[in-house]
Simulated assay, not measured.
Amino acid sequence: MADPAELIAQLRPLRAPPPDGAAEILVMALVGCIAGAMLTLAFLFWRARRRPLRRAALSALVAARALPAAERLAAQAKLLRDLVGALDGGVARLHGEPWLARLDALFATTLFSAGEGRAFGDALYRPHADDPTERLDRALRALLARVDR
């Protein structure tokens, strides 16, 4: 038999097994998660800043809810004038039936020429027997939700 010292000298040194890549995979997953979170935050920020006209109109509509009926109707009419002025410019100068027809065309509805929205035409300057503001508020909220600016 060979000398044990000679046998020990013939042994090769111990080596660690090759890395399995778990650390690299973990780092890449972490980088991916951070990139995904950044993209999500960027999208949410972009979406929140989008459609400022709609947000302003809806907040004006909410602010008008605290007013008495006659003032609320006037605030809603001013909201529509401001919105149409921002969307269409000079069209906000229309009055009466042409104004109601333009509102119907702009919002793709018949609310203003044939429904409760007639209150924003010449009827705006006449006393009302009933209070249409609550119904108009709901209808305007639904219409403003469709504004894409």
Rank of each mutant, 00 (worst) to 15 (best):
L41K: 07
T109M: 04
D88L: 15
V62H: 09
L103F: 01
F112I: 00
L39V: 11
A23V: 05
R118H: 02
M38R: 05
L111T: 09
G32Q: 00
A35Q: 01
F45I: 13
G117W: 00
A66W: 10
M28Q: 15
L73Q: 05
L94S: 03
V27I: 13
L94Q: 08
A108Q: 13
A105Q: 15
R72W: 03
L30A: 11
G36D: 02
G36Y: 02
A57K: 11
A69Y: 04
A42W: 15
E116C: 07
L79M: 10
F112K: 02
A108E: 13
L106V: 03
L94Y: 12
G115T: 01
E71D: 15
A69C: 08
L106E: 13
V62M: 09
T110H: 14
E24N: 02
L100G: 03
A69G: 07
A57E: 03
L73E: 05
L53A: 05
C33Y: 04
A35P: 01
L58F: 05
V31I: 12
A75M: 10
L53P: 05
A86N: 10
P52Q: 06
A86Q: 14
A70N: 08
A35L: 14
T109I: 01
G21L: 01
A64V: 02
L67I: 05
V84R: 11
A37T: 08
F45Q: 11
A22F: 09
A108I: 08
T40E: 10
E24Q: 10
A114M: 04
L26Q: 08
G117L: 03
R72P: 01
L79T: 12
D88T: 06
L67Q: 14
F112H: 05
A48W: 15
A77R: 10
A64Q: 02
A105H: 04
I25P: 00
R47H: 07
L100W: 06
E71H: 12
V62R: 13
A56Y: 03
A48R: 14
R118Y: 13
A77H: 15
L41Q: 12
L83S: 08
A114T: 09
R93N: 09
V62F: 06
T109A: 00
W46N: 14
G90H: 10
A48G: 07
D88M: 07
